[in-house]
């Protein structure tokens, strides 16, 4: 495939999407490195997985619809997959961290109200 067949407006739209997506992912990574505590850091990667991923995948979807005649199946799949799985992993990690902090008796986290039933 050559990029020459892509019209100018589409090229500008694609570059805007991919750059915004990459920038948001980068900001998420910087947040991960900069935030002072674990519970603050856990918010940072969601930037990359929400609109960071949407930007890059939208750019790819536009490019493949215009440039080649490929159906955007993989972009849809990757997007649904990422948006469904990240909250699950983050929640599990947060619960593990909470549990570890409580076992150590850290004063930064709220104490156990009672034993969670579903463990």
């Amino acid at each position: 495939m050559s990029f020459d067949d892509v019209p100018l407006w589409a090229a500008l739209l694609i570059s805007a999407c991919v750059l915004v997506g990459a920038f948001l992912t980068f900001v998420g990574a910087v947040g991960l490195a900069r935030m002072p505590s674990f519970y603050q850091r856990i918010h940072a990667p969601t930037l990359g997985t929400s609109f960071g991923a949407v930007g890059v995948l939208a750019a790819s979807a536009i490019l493949s619809t215009i440039g080649e005649d490929r159906f955007i199946a993989h972009e849809i799949l990757i997007f649904t997959f990422v948006s469904v799985t990240t909250p699950v992993t983050l929640m599990l990690l947060a619960r593990a961290a909470l549990h570890r902090d409580r076992v150590e008796g850290s004063s930064d986290v709220p104490a156990v109200v009672e034993r969670p039933v579903d463990q």
Binding site: G28, Y39, I42, H43, A44, T46, L47, T49, S50, S83, T86, P87, L90, M91, A94
Partner: peptide
């Protein structure tokens, strides 16, 4: 959790 800025 998926919304940046709040986590369950």
């Amino acid at each position: 959790t998926a919304t940046p800025g709040s986590a369950w």
